[in-house]
Simulated scan of single mutants.
Amino acid sequence: MSTHRETGEIEGPFPTDDPVFRLIEFYLANGYRIVERQKEPSDAQSSEDDTAPLTGATVERGRAGAGWWTSNMTELHTSVVIERHDELMRVSYTVDTSGQLLNEAEQAFWSREIRSAQRFARGDADEPRDLRKEEERRAENQKDELMSIGLWGAIGVFTLIVVLAFLGII
């Protein structure tokens, strides 16, 4: 399995006492699902306290092996681990890129997502920005461009065969 790894750090201050939860909000708005949440270990009676701030989480999006049939980066299986260290949060991406040869625009998608998550976590944005539509348009444009190149290539080969046949070479 081929993987792409990307890590980003988000420095505080944060507009909330639970910046991990705020980041989870961002990732949920971008199509991720929560796999795991971590809370600070505390005394037994408050271990089930749902109001305690989170120290970390893991979210996932996409399906394993999706790289064999799509060039949309939001459809690839992506796991994001969020870790809080006082006034610093670290987000670590692991993306299944099997079947892909990523170009710069495709690799840059996760950096854009990290920057957008950073703006939301710091309170620079009131609403989480959903990057899926933008990525869908990029992937569709890439597919259209590839189809156009293929069509013009086929026309060129057909024309060459007709000319060679007309000249009696083949």
Results as ranks from 00 to 15, higher is better:
T16D: 13
V80P: 02
T55H: 01
D18N: 12
D49K: 05
D124I: 04
A105I: 02
E40I: 09
E135H: 09
P128C: 00
T94G: 01
E40L: 12
L54K: 07
G67W: 05
Q100T: 10
V35T: 07
W110K: 02
V91Y: 03
E104G: 07
P15A: 09
Y27F: 14
S71Q: 12
P19S: 04
R138F: 05
N141L: 14
S79C: 09
K39L: 07
D86H: 12
R37W: 00
P128S: 00
K143S: 13
R129M: 09
L101E: 12
T51P: 00
E113C: 09
D130V: 06
T55G: 01
L28V: 08
R119I: 03
F120H: 12
S42E: 11
V20D: 03
Q100V: 12
F120T: 03
G150H: 01
L88V: 14
N30G: 12
S47K: 08
P53D: 08
E9N: 05
L102H: 06
S71D: 14
Y27I: 00
R90D: 02
I114G: 00
P53V: 09
T51S: 13
I24M: 13
G123D: 04
M89L: 15
D18M: 08
E145L: 10
L151N: 06
I82C: 03
S98V: 15
T74S: 13
P15W: 07
P19I: 03
E75D: 14
G67Q: 05
V20G: 02
M147F: 10
D18T: 05
E145M: 07
F21K: 12
S116R: 03
D126E: 11
V91Q: 11
K39D: 02
K133L: 13
G62S: 13
I114P: 00
G99F: 14
M89P: 02
L76N: 07
Y32Q: 04
E60D: 08
E60V: 11
A117P: 01
E87H: 10
G56V: 02
Y93L: 02
S116C: 04
L88H: 10
W110L: 05
E127R: 11
S71E: 10
R119L: 12
E113F: 01
R122L: 10
R61D: 04
E40P: 11
A139T: 07
V35S: 09
L23A: 15
D43T: 09
A125C: 01
M89Q: 12
V59L: 15
E104V: 07
S111A: 15
S116E: 06
K143I: 13
L151W: 08
R137N: 06
E11P: 00
I82L: 15
E145K: 04
E140A: 14
P13Q: 03
Q100S: 13
G12Y: 06
D124F: 12
E127T: 08
L131Y: 09
T78Y: 07
E75R: 14
T78L: 10
K143H: 12
S46W: 11
D18I: 07
A125H: 03
G153V: 04
M89E: 05
M89I: 15
S116L: 04
T97C: 06
G123Q: 08
